[in-house]
């Protein structure tokens, strides 16, 4: 069985080690947008594999296997982000030079942020860690799960996982 930190099992929030385990290395991040799969507990679930048109999430031998991503094949298209029932997949794009990065996050709330709107950025523990501008909102499968693209400083890509509309 895969080892999970006490912190995660007690609070539902990743430990630093677990964040590092799922984040892509710098050379992958440089290449373009890629998916970060934050699903590290063996649960009976596999739709991420079937939802990826590029075969980037490997086929499951057993439905309880952990998803395994091949960043070489991933285009950052976000189809898996909007399909995963755990809402555990996020796309990071840190390929630009400089301090700017984009995060593509699953979103199932009302109200829906608008393009250009400034929203609060929340970390894995729900703390507001900054503000960012929404660049786009799409609904890949037309099933209620939206994907919000938000601008964040590059040093926050491993930290921010939710946005909140403040009006």
């Amino acid at each position: 069985m895969v080892k999970l930190s006490e912190h995660l099992r007690r609070t539902g929030v990743f430990s630093m080690e677990e964040v590092n385990r799922v984040m892509p290395p710098p050379e992958v991040l440089k290449k373009g947008p890629v998916a970060v799969v934050e699903c590290i507990q063996e649960i009976p679930c596999d739709p991420c594999h079937a939802s990826c048109p590029f075969g980037a999430i490997k086929e499951f031998k057993d439905i309880n296997d952990l998803p395994e991503i091949d960043w070489e094949k991933c285009t950052g298209c976000t189809l898996c982000v909007a399909k995963c029932p755990g809402l555990a997949i996020f796309v990071v794009d840190a390929s630009c030079d400089g301090d700017d990065a984009l995060l593509k996050l699953p979103y199932e709330f009302y109200p829906v942020p608008e393009k250009g709107e400034e929203v609060e950025l929340l970390n894995r523990a729900g703390e507001v860690v900054g503000k960012g501008e929404v660049r786009s909102v799409i609904e890949p499968h037309k099933d209620g799960t939206k994907v919000v693209t938000v601008h964040v400083p590059k040093d926050m890509i491993a930290d921010v996982r939710h946005v909140r509309v403040v009006r």
Binding site: E108, F109, Y110, P111, V112, G144
Partner: peptide
Amino acid sequence: SSRLEHHPI
């Protein structure tokens, strides 16, 4: 007001 007028799903 406890009736929902808007819901994301």
